[in-house]
């Protein structure tokens, strides 16, 4: 599936915006991901063609930034904070409980395609520790406990 007309024009517009095609690469990847959840090879190549950069150049950027996903992710991406303040408040018990509940580890997606679990550096939610950010809009959740993880996973995780 190729990029929508809307995305194609947004990418072209971004190129004229600030600093030219190179500077537009990251924002283009972000826009693609916001719409599709991740960045496929096909979309990456299409963006490269639109921007007039090589596939290698845009891949170089895509693979450096940890929150550009180059593999399909679940409907809900769960980013669990592994910063020290969360650790000190039981983040690893929450992590273990989420992993057990979903049957996956960090960097994995549930077989039904509903959840992807990723660890992330301090999410700036130390006043809600242990914290995480969830979904495409990166909603801050916390303090999490092994007992209340169902609330963030939702009923369909059972």
């Amino acid at each position: 599936m190729s990029l929508s007309k809307h995305l194609r024009s947004a990418i072209t517009e971004e190129m004229d915006h600030h600093g030219g095609p190179r500077a537009a690469m990251l924002e283009s990847l972000r826009m693609i991901q916001q719409e599709h959840g991740w960045v496929s090879d096909e979309h990456l190549e299409e963006a490269a063609t639109l921007l007039g950069v090589t596939t290698a150049e845009i891949e170089d950027v895509a693979t450096f930034y940890s929150l550009i996903f180059r593999q399909p992710v679940g409907e809900k991406v769960i980013l669990l904070c592994d910063g020290a303040s969360c650790y000190l408040n039981g983040a690893e018990d929450v992590r273990d409980a989420v992993m057990k509940r979903l049957g996956i580890g960090f960097g994995q997606t549930t077989p039904d395609g509903k959840y992807t679990l990723i660890n992330i550096c301090c999410v700036g939610g130390c006043d809600h520790a242990p914290a995480g950010v969830i979904g495409r809009n990166r909603k801050l959740v916390g303090p999490l406990t092994p007992e209340t993880i169902d609330e963030i996973l939702g009923e369909d995780a059972k």
Binding site: H18, G19, P21, R22, A23, A24, M25, L26, E27, L29, R30, D60, V61, F64, Y65, S66, L67, I68, I120, C121
Partner: peptide, 26 residues
């Protein structure tokens, strides 16, 4: 204007941040 980043702690280092804004690895 606002430039939303896309992860990686090192982006906060000021010269890495400049690289990031130029569309490179930070």
């Amino acid at each position: 204007w606002v430039h939303p980043s896309a992860g990686r702690y090192i982006v906060g280092e000021e010269t890495a941040l400049i690289e990031a804004l130029e569309g490179k690895r930070a």
